[in-house]
Design a protein around this nucleic acid. Sequence first.
DNA 1: CTTGAGCGG
Length: 293
Amino acid sequence: MCIECQYEAVVLILCSWEGEGPSHSSRNSSINHRPMADYQVQKNEGKTNLIINYLPQNMTEKELYSMFVTIGPVESCRVMKDFKTGYSYGFGFVNYSKAEDASRAIGTLNGLQVQNKRLKVSFARPSGEEIKETNLYVTNLPRNITEQYLDLLFGKYGQIVQKNLLKDKLTGMPRGVAFVRFDRRDEAQEAINSLNGVIPENGTEPLVVKIAEEHGKQKAAYYAGWQAGYNQSRGGAGSRGRGGVGRGGGMVRGGVGGYSGIRSYSGVMRPDKSHNRYNPIGMGGGYNMYNWN
DNA sequence: CTTGAGCGG
């Protein structure tokens, strides 16, 4: 709560905003309570900050930086990863010093093939509720579903940003399951309202349309190769069940094979190569203007 | 059986 302007929401906006300008406490009291988007437009924010999607799993912040700094000076650079395991979520942010470089980066780096991925480079938006929960999980789609039909079905409720028809891994046949990502939350919600429970023209079952769960972040630990579920509540000898690491080739570099000397720790551990012991993984720092080597 | 990844600090 702000003693000066008495507006909690505004305090959050103004004080969490990283950048130049007068500090909040030094503002005069004639401060305007504008919505954030407006505020950022005035400060030319949002024109320098990019979100990079579809990063290869192994790409580090340093690599991301060296790729994007070829366009121009980079203010900051970050790969989003699991806090404990350091496992990359496959997307990140690059904030340029100059807006012109940001747009040039989109022009030259968007779609670039890097290893097994094609980067998607676009302007990041100020984080907020409007862009959360935009990803839909759809089941009971007709078996003969096509991407075009998905567009027909969902496109009228908003801008589809990404879609993915799941197919059976063995037969390649459509599973009747899809992910549809909208640009904004209200669009996704409208699609749910209008389509959930509805039987499409060429289908027989009512569609199930809901917000996709975000459990990919829990999966990160699994795929990273640590045995995440030791269940060592009390009474000792808590290793039970299958660790289930890396079924189907999930083991990624850095994976720990069968460590069993479990003592008393909570959280995920990683090997510390220099000391040959296990340490909890710290927070990822990210690269900023004054810190890269 | 909810995809290897679309909004943090």
